[in-house]
Design a protein around this nucleic acid. Structure first.
Length: 726
DNA sequence: TGGGAGTGCTTTTTT
DNA sequence: AGCACTCCCA
């Protein structure tokens, strides 16, 4: 018997994973080990060997991009129609489930989805109407609280009230639930929780889906939160096989509720017979992998895994110590220029940093050098102001009781409806238990007139678009609402007008795509699915000016990507690892995983850099090199600057070779009469080598703040502490 | 109603 | 420093 062509070229572990008999499986897939390939080949194999039909497969990812990628690869592997297959994000699939069973889920057919920003404004509105003290209960904090509860699977009634403060927050959570229900809107976490509850409560539906999906495949399993895991357990509870792929070493979203522990729990609770490890890396050269392995080895909480490659060790890792953030940026630009001269494509060069604030200096330097670049992580299409305005009008057509949408555009473009009128309206709505829109009819006087005119506008939009194809609906709404002319008259409005036009195009291509793919949603208003699409998929990040551009992004957004050349900048204690994370063990381990992710993005060449001083939040900070630099074996590193100032290495006496000494701003401060100055390296008997970052007081009262790296930031009295210049 | 001044925040981010 | 947000005045 011959092997299916689809299995050709898989290594033994990949093959074992792909062809596993129907049983629960945990695949530990290291960076660059062919994870997506295994996942898609597994699906193709199940179908080709008739173990499952497309109908019986559920595949879950975290991002729309990953879902799309999977679908694309699958359709090139299988010459069949994949329509019946459920591939998508957790949220997308839950949306699909809730749309199909909206009645059972107690939702209006055209329920709207609140994105993060919508949710926040809904909470702000609620806080105002409940007369909550927003100093004590900041809306942002409430939003976080509510989402955290939902992600634990907890309704307001189930949250434990341990103190008065929490009790009040629970009341607000409860009021928020009522408000959402009244308005017919759901937030992201609600999509998950609501569909989980639907399946819990409704045995018939539960069994239907449990019996339908015999194979459940999960991508990036290390990123699942508590609720997502329970959701999977429930769907798989009818004897399905769950095939979970993940990498605990790449879990970098703990800060927003991702639970790496789910991997261990899964292994235990589902009695996974043996975990398959994909450790052969097809991406990076040996030195890069060795560095990554050496770094991650310092983490305690690991399932354990060691990447290897047969690609040869390749080049050493280049490391540069800059005197300042500006100096660092300048050096990076010079290096990139040289790389481009050597024939490297700009798009194959990535510039990574820990936090977005770092991009400014880099962008400036790239811009000055006329190097095309593209920054990821900006405002996305569906998040733009003008787009959200247009969508709000569309939402009001679908559901005039959507108070969030109502509030957004009731006076935009301005039509003389001021804060006073809206307060009046909100009062009426509250006392009578009506939506803002419904409350208009109860209002008289001047406020009543202008608001009635707005209600009439919404009604005319609804009537004027009835039966029209979606793109024409969108176009009509943009024109008649006054948005279009408003932005045309605005000085800087040209881009916004263009974006509104683009929205019409987006709706047209949505219809074109959707019509060919979603037979199950027939009969449902195209408008509603378009609105859901807009919420669930915020759209491409801001397009770059040029296709062949240097790629700038945070380490987080680099996950899943790879480049021939990678720069990791700002490798400084306090920045990377971030100071907020250093204190707790878990935080530091997550930072280290982040570093691991960063390093493993590189195929052939990796640059590391750090700066002695950096401007942050309007203040100059004095830094020492990141501990992660020291976790890389010295033999793998090629220093482009003499190795000094590296507090973790025991060579404090190395001198700065050649050139002028680093241009540290040495202000004559209180510290100077002791022979010490800011920016100076010092030795301390207990804490070791550090750098002075701040000083206060004078004479015998002088205290200095010293960054000791490992030992942290300390304030020391000069009279007491024995500090010697290093 | 809109803009100017004052205030406060600032890790990472997808859905 | 830079940005978002609020508040107050013309």
């Amino acid at each position: 018997m011959e092997m299916l062509p689809l299995l050709h070229g898989l290594n033994p572990e990949q093959l074992a994973a792909v062809t596993l008999p129907p049983q629960h499986a945990l695949i530990l897939a290291g960076a660059g080990s062919g994870k997506t390939r295994v996942l898609t080949t597994r699906i193709a194999w199940l179908i080709q060997t008739n173990q499952a039909g497309p109908h019986g497969i559920l595949a879950v990812t975290f991002t729309n991009k990953a879902a799309k990628e999977m679908l694309t690869r699958l359709s090139s592997m299988l010459p069949i129609n994949l329509r019946g297959m459920w591939i998508g994000t957790f949220h997308g699939l839950c949306n699909r489930l809730l749309r199909a069973h909206h009645r059972e889920a107690a939702l209006p057919q055209l329920f709207q989805i609140l994105d993060q920003a919508d949710q926040l404004s809904a909470i702000k509105r609620l806080v105002k109407s409940l007369d909550v003290d927003d100093e004590k209960y900041p809306p942002r904090e409430l939003q976080h609280f509510i989402n955290a509860q939902k992600e634990q699977g907890l309704r307001a009634s189930a949250v434990e009230a341990w103190d008065d403060f929490t009790r009040r927050r629970i009341e607000i959570y409860e009021a928020y639930e009522r408000q959402c229900q009244r308005e017919g809107v759901v937030d992201f976490a609600e999509l998950l929780l609501r569909s989980f509850e639907l399946l819990t409560r409704n045995e018939i539906l539960r069994r239907h889906y449990q019996e339908r999906f015999r194979h459940i495949l999960v991508d990036e399993f290390q990123d699942t939160n508590v609720l997502q895991y329970r959701w999977l357990k429930q769907l798989g509870g009818g004897g399905a096989s769950i095939f979970a792929v993940g990498d605990d070493d790449q879990s970098i979203y703990g800060f927003r509720g991702a639970e790496v522990g789910n991997m261990r729990d899964f292994e235990r609770e589902f009695k996974v017979a043996h975990v398959i490890r994909l450790e052969q890396n097809y991406r990076s050269h040996g030195n890069i992998l060795d560095a990554a392995n050496a770094i991650i080895k310092n983490n305690e909480a690991r399932l354990g895994k060691n990447l290897w490659t047969d690609a040869g060790s390749g080049e050493p890792i280049r490391i540069f110590e800059a005197t300042s953030d500006l100096d660092e940026a300048r050096w990076i630009v010079e290096e990139i220029k040289a790389l481009c001269r050597d024939g490297h494509a700009r798009a194959e060069i990535a510039l990574l940093y820990r936090s977005n604030a770092q991009s400014r200096v880099l962008e400036h330097a790239l811009f000055s050098a006329a190097l095309p670049y593209r920054v990821y992580g900006g405002l996305r299409f569906f998040e733009r102001q003008e787009i959200k305005h247009a969508l709000a009008y569309l939402r009001l057509i679908a559901n005039p009781d959507d108070d969030t949408a109502f509030s957004r555009v009731v006076n935009f473009p301005t039509r003389g409806i001021g804060a006073r009128s809206l307060e009046q309206l909100a009062d009426v709505a509250r006392t009578r238990g009506l939506s803002l829109h419904a409350a208009i009819a109860q209002l008289s006087g001047k406020a009543g007139t202008s608001l009635a005119a707005f209600a009439a506008l919404i009604e005319s939009l609804r009537q004027g678009t009835e039966g029209l194809p979606l793109p024409e609906v969108v176009d009509h709404v943009i024109e008649i609402s006054g948005l279009s002319s408003h932005y045309r008259n605005e000085r800087e409005g040209a881009d916004r007008v263009a974006n509104l036009d683009e929205l019409v195009n987006a709706s047209a291509s949505f219809v074109a795509e959707e019509g060919s793919r979603e037979p199950e949603e027939e009969g449902q208003s195209a408008l509603a699915s378009f609105l859901a699409h807009a919420s669930l998929e915020a759209g491409e990040h801001q397009a770059g000016d040029s296709d062949d551009a240097v790629q700038l992004m945070t380490v987080h957004s680099a996950k899943g990507l790879e480049f021939n050349v990678v720069f990791i900048s700002g490798l400084e204690e306090g920045l990377f690892p971030h100071e907020n994370a250093i204190l707790e063990e878990k935080g530091l381990e997550e930072e280290r995983r982040l570093m691991y992710v960063a390093v493993t993005r590189a195929r052939a060449r990796l640059y590391l850099s750090f700066a002695q001083t950096r401007m942050l939040h309007g203040q100059t900070r004095y830094n020492v090199a990141s501990r992660f630099v020291d976790e890389i074996p010295a033999a793998l590193l090629k220093w482009l600057t003499p190795k000094i100032r590296n507090v973790f290495a025991a060579s404090p006496n190395a001198s700065y070779g050649g050139g002028p000494s680093p241009a540290l701003p040495r202000k004559a401060g209180p510290a100077s009469d002791s022979g010490l100055s800011i920016g100076q390296n010092v030795n301390h008997a207990k804490f070791g080598l550090g750098v002075i970052v701040n000083a206060e007081g004078s004479g015998s009262d002088t205290r200095v703040q010293v960054n000791f790296g490992h030992a942290g930031m300390k304030w020391l009295a000069l009279a007491v502490a024995k500090l010697t210049p290093a």
